[in-house]
Simulated scan of single mutants.
Amino acid sequence: MSESTPVWARDLVAAQGTPDAPPQEAPGGERPEDAPAATGTTAEPQPLGVTVAATGNAEVDAAVERLGDADELPVHAHIEVYEDVHQGLRDTLTALDENRG
């Protein structure tokens, strides 16, 4: 592989190995072939477990809390939650701007 080969391509070859060199281990000691095989079934959604500190603004805190609703939804349904939260945050910012003037 030459110096002009993109880094991502070199990393891919290193991870997969070649006939001359076995695959390299990942930082955690796992190799790609050690990963569980895909079964073709759709897994249940798993919460990300992200925690967010309160901002002190009730409207913003309510909007951020609403993001947690996406944890219980399949990925294709997340957009509705994100759009709702985005609109709520925009409304809150607009209200703050209007009170400044």
Rank of each mutant, 00 (worst) to 15 (best):
D69Y: 09
E3R: 10
G17N: 08
G101W: 09
G17A: 10
L12C: 10
E30L: 15
T41W: 09
N99Q: 13
L89F: 04
R31K: 13
P32V: 14
Q16C: 15
L48D: 04
G29R: 08
A14H: 07
A63D: 02
T41M: 12
A14C: 04
V64R: 00
T5Y: 05
L48P: 02
E44P: 06
A21F: 15
A95N: 09
P23W: 14
V85H: 02
T92Q: 00
A43M: 09
P32L: 15
S4C: 09
A26K: 05
E44D: 12
N57C: 04
A9S: 13
Q16S: 12
L67E: 01
V85R: 01
T18P: 02
L93A: 09
G28E: 13
T42K: 10
G101D: 12
A95G: 13
T42E: 11
G28W: 14
P74F: 06
E44I: 07
T55N: 02
D71A: 15
E83A: 10
I79N: 06
G29E: 08
A53N: 07
Q87C: 01
G88N: 04
A63M: 00
T42S: 08
E44N: 10
P23E: 14
A53E: 14
Y82V: 08
I79D: 11
R90V: 13
V13E: 15
V13C: 08
T42R: 14
P32T: 08
E98W: 07
G56A: 05
G68D: 00
D69T: 11
Y82E: 03
T94S: 06
D71S: 14
R66K: 09
D97G: 02
A77C: 03
A14N: 08
H78D: 11
L96K: 01
R31Y: 13
H76V: 12
S4F: 09
E72G: 15
H76Y: 05
G29V: 09
G17Q: 12
L96S: 04
H78N: 10
P45I: 04
P36K: 05
V64K: 00
R31H: 11
G17Y: 14
V7A: 13
A37P: 05
T18H: 00
P22C: 06
S2Q: 11
E98H: 04
A63P: 02
A77T: 07
A35G: 06
L73G: 07
H86V: 02
L67R: 03
V52G: 01
L12E: 14
V52A: 03
V52W: 00
H76W: 01
T5Q: 15
T55E: 04
V52H: 02
V64G: 02
D34W: 14
E3N: 13
T18N: 05
